[in-house]
C-alpha cells in the first residue's frame, strides 16, 4: 500500500524513563529507538532478524528490534545498551569483562550481544559454557572470531558463581 498511514502516539519506558514519540504503524522499532528517541547505541545490521545487532530487551526479554514495530510498544518497557552503565558512567561487570577480554573490535554488534546476555544472565546466572555459546549463536560478529566474547561472559559467570566448596572440608 502506497498511501501513508497517520502516525500514532507511542509511549513507553526506555531505560527507566517514560518517553513518547509518534510513529506510522510501519515504523520499525529500530528506527524509532534510534531516530525518534535518539538512542543510537542500538545498531541496525540486517533488518531481517539474523544478525542480532539490534537486540534490545523488550518487557524483560531480549529480542530483535528490527522484527517489531514501534506501535506495538505502546506501554512497553525497553532496555538498550545505554542502560547498562551506572549514573556515573561506570560500566557494569559484563561491560568490563568485554573490555578486559578484548571481546569487541568495531563494536557494532556489541550492543546487541550485551543485551542478549543481560537478559540471559538475569534469568540464568550460572549457565554452562555451552549455554553461553548457544545464546551467542544468535549474533553475527565479523571482527572478533567470538572466542573472546565467550571468555568474557564466562568470566562474569564465574565471578558470580559461589566459590567451589573445599572438598577437604566435607
Amino acid at each position: 500500500m502506497i498511501e501513508q498511514k497517520p502516525k500514532q502516539r507511542v509511549t513507553l519506558t526506555l531505560n527507566g524513563r517514560k518517553v513518547t514519540g509518534d510513529a506510522e504503524p510501519r515504523l520499525l522499532l529500530t528506527d524509532f529507538i534510534r531516530h525518534t528517541l535518539g538512542a543510537t547505541g542500538t545498531h541496525v545490521g540486517c533488518e531481517h532478524g539474523v544478525c542480532g545487532c539490534c537486540t534490545v530487551i523488550i518487557d524483560g526479554v531480549a529480542a530483535r528490534s528490527c522484527l517489531a514495530f514501534a506501535v506495538q510498544m505502546d506501554g512497553a518497557t525497553i532496555e538498550t545498551v545505554e542502560s547498562l552503565a551506572d549514573e556515573d558512567g561506570r560500566m557494569n561487570a559484563l561491560q568490563e569483562a568485554f573490555r578486559r577480554h578484548h571481546a569487541l573490535q568495531c563494536g557494532f554488534c556489541t550492543s546487541g550481544i550485551l543485551m542478549s546476555f543481560t537478559d540471559f544472565l538475569r534469568r540464568n546466572p550460572e549457565p554452562s559454557r555451552d549455554e553461553v555459546v548457544d545464546v551467542l549463536c544468535g549474533h553475527l560478529c565479523r571482527c572478533t572470531g567470538y572466542a573472546n566474547i565467550v571468555d568474557a561472559v564466562m568470566d562474569v559467570v564465574e565471578a558470580h558463581a559461589p566459590p567451589q566448596r573445599d572438598i577437604g572440608a566435607v
Binding site: 542480532g52 537486540t55 529480542a63 530483535r64 542478549s116 548457544d134 549463536c137 544468535g138 549474533h139
Partner: peptide, 9 residues
C-alpha cells in the same frame, strides 16, 4: 527453533 533471541518473541 531459531535462536534464544527469536524464541523470546
Amino acid at each position: 527453533v531459531g535462536h534464544f533471541q527469536t524464541r523470546n518473541r
